[in-house]
Design a protein around this nucleic acid. Structure first.
Lengths: 127, 127
DNA sequence: CGAATACATGAACATATCTTCAGGTATTTG
DNA sequence: CAAATACCTGAAGATATGTTCATGTATTCG
């Protein structure tokens, strides 16, 4: 009993609060397993892309229509470079697509799913 | 024409790419306004809380049932302190509620909305 | 072709973030 | 009451992040 099962990271002095899940390996009833590390990492990275104000403002514009980098920079009153860096992050997360037209690059949201998520949270915070 | 309207932050040498939004103040047709700075900040903070793997794993557990701090620490194989710090962040964001029972504190998700958002994104990343 | 424009990129710097460590409070138990 | 337990908190250190600056590439135009 009270085995901590190689709980390496825990405090030096093992404590005893076995409310309902003392030994995860005892095939008890309420088997609740946390999200796996890898998936938690991926999911965190996804939310992290949405955690920057500049990127959210870009998304708010692209939710309306397509824009080239320069216009985005003008509307947000930031340098082309800063915008380009952030668009790079949005591209890496596959949240935006783009098409080249001459020397301009027009960005748009990759799919409706992003817009839905954005609007859902936007409304949720309007309280 | 070509007024940049106090575009202080932009590059030193003003450039000229007036695709469709040169002067936001000219009451033109496609009036697209970015998300306000303040709201973008708030929204970013919200997503930021969900951008940490540990907090997401906590949410994944609390989506199933109520847990005390110690049990959460055991399941995630982390120190009570680390968990407590993260629960503090989740509390500040009003994502979790808690009730004290003796010397234990049981946490639960504040409302179903969080669970919905978590599950939506979770499924979205399962591709 | 050469200059200007539109965009991308790497390095650097300042700032933010997360875990650990060392304590501190409150409740329970012997 | 004293010790142990459950949890909280501030400071510190390592790491991650975002903007700026300087530069590079590609396209257009004179």
């Amino acid at each position: 009993m009270f085995k901590r099962v190689s709980n390496v990271a825990n405090s030096p002095t093992d404590k005893i609060c076995e409310t309902k899940c003392s030994d995860p390996h005892s095939g008890a009833a309420g088997q609740v397993v946390p999200l796996a590390m890898g998936k938690a990492q991926k999911m965190g990275e996804f939310f992290n892309v949405l955690s920057d104000p500049t990127r959210l403002r870009l998304i708010s514009l692209l939710a309306e229509e397509e824009f080239c980098v320069c216009d985005l920079a003008i509307q947000l009153e930031m340098t082309d470079s800063a915008i380009s860096h952030q668009l790079r992050a949005l591209r890496a997360a596959r949240l935006v697509s783009y098409r080249k037209l001459g020397r301009q690059v027009f960005y748009r949201l990759h799919d409706q799913h992003v817009v839905d998520l954005y609007r859902t949270v936007h409304e949720h915070l309007e309280e």
